Amino acid sequence: MEFDPPLQSGLLLRRYKRFLTDILLDDGQELTIHCANTGAMTGCADPGTRVWYSTSNNPKRKLPHSWEIAQSPAGHLICVNTARANTLTRELLERDALAPLAGYDTLRAEVKYGEENSRIDFLLQGQGRADCYIEVKSVTLLDEREGAGLGYFPDAVTARGAKHLRELMAMKAAGHRAVLLFMVLHTGIIRVRPATWIDPHYSQLVEQARLAGVEILCYRPHLGVQRMEPDGFIPFESVLCDPSVADKSGIG
């Protein structure tokens, strides 16, 4: 996936009202751009951070510019536009570039399903194969207190994410294939865990879903300031690896 037109950059001044960001351009001009990330953006939004933004030619947009990438103090690149996770996933699915999800005949996006009025990010279907329901989540939280390269999801309490997990478990119980795909958009993350200290309920549901047969995949593309390219899968680490964490989460 290539950013077209090419991204431009500036320095972050402030993020406010969730969707607004002020940046300082290299020529000294201040510019307000849109932020499409509703999460906490921990480690991604400190003042002085180098950011890259895209420009839309849609005349109906109030803010034509969107924040796409941040650079952490350690030099890691982070794609903060969560919509890009789905854009990249679709591109990879259409190219059969995700081996565990390859070989289906049709791909549909935003399909209504389930008993909680949900829409699945992607539905794969193929003759002689169980329907495959894929929910995509963007991972940008790096926290290395428990080890190098550890990424976590979510970065804020997510009732919507919990609903999606319940729906995936229901699809699996109905005989379909259900996949939770963590799209890792942070170059410093090399493995992913549930963020039990941020949202213990969601973390518990992730473990319940995994034990119920929902597949959990973590994919990290090669991220640059002008494009994202295929790379490979990285490990998902269950909180059950640590009995003390599992006990605190009520799992097991």
Rank of each mutant, 00 (worst) to 15 (best):
S56L: 11
E30H: 09
G43M: 00
L31H: 13
T38K: 08
S56C: 07
T38I: 01
M41I: 04
T32Q: 14
N57D: 15
G28D: 11
G43R: 02
T42M: 11
N37S: 12
G48A: 03
C35F: 06
P47M: 10
A40Y: 07
G28Q: 10
Q29L: 11
A45C: 15
D27L: 14
V51W: 09
W52A: 06
T32V: 12
I33A: 04
T42Q: 14
P47E: 08
N37L: 01
H34R: 15
N57R: 05
N37P: 04
H34W: 15
C44S: 14
S54E: 06
A45N: 12
T55F: 08
N57K: 07
V51P: 01
P47G: 09
T49F: 10
N57C: 04
V51Q: 01
E30G: 05
H34T: 11
G43N: 03
T32K: 09
E30R: 12
N57G: 09
W52S: 05
H34A: 14
V51T: 00
S56G: 05
N57Q: 13
V51H: 06
V51A: 03
T42F: 11
A36P: 00
G39V: 02
G48I: 03
D27T: 07
A36H: 05
Y53W: 14
W52L: 10
I33D: 07
Y53F: 15
C35M: 11
Q29V: 11
Q29E: 15
A45Y: 00
D46K: 10
D27H: 10
A36W: 03
A40T: 12
A36T: 04
C44N: 12
T49Q: 06
A36Q: 02
E30W: 01
T38V: 02
M41N: 08
P47F: 11
C35G: 06
T32Y: 10
D27I: 11
W52C: 07
A45T: 08
T55G: 00
C44P: 01
A40W: 06
H34Q: 15
S56W: 09
C44Y: 00
W52Q: 05
N37M: 02
E30N: 10
Q29C: 07
H34V: 06
A40E: 12
E30S: 09
R50H: 13
G28F: 13
T49Y: 09
A36E: 01
D27N: 15
T32W: 07
T38S: 14
C44K: 02
N57W: 10
T49H: 03
G28N: 14
G48C: 03
T42Y: 12
E30C: 08
A45S: 15
V51Y: 02
E30D: 13
H34I: 08
C35S: 13
L31T: 04
M41H: 09
D46N: 07
G39H: 11
T49P: 00
S56D: 09
Y53A: 00
C44G: 04
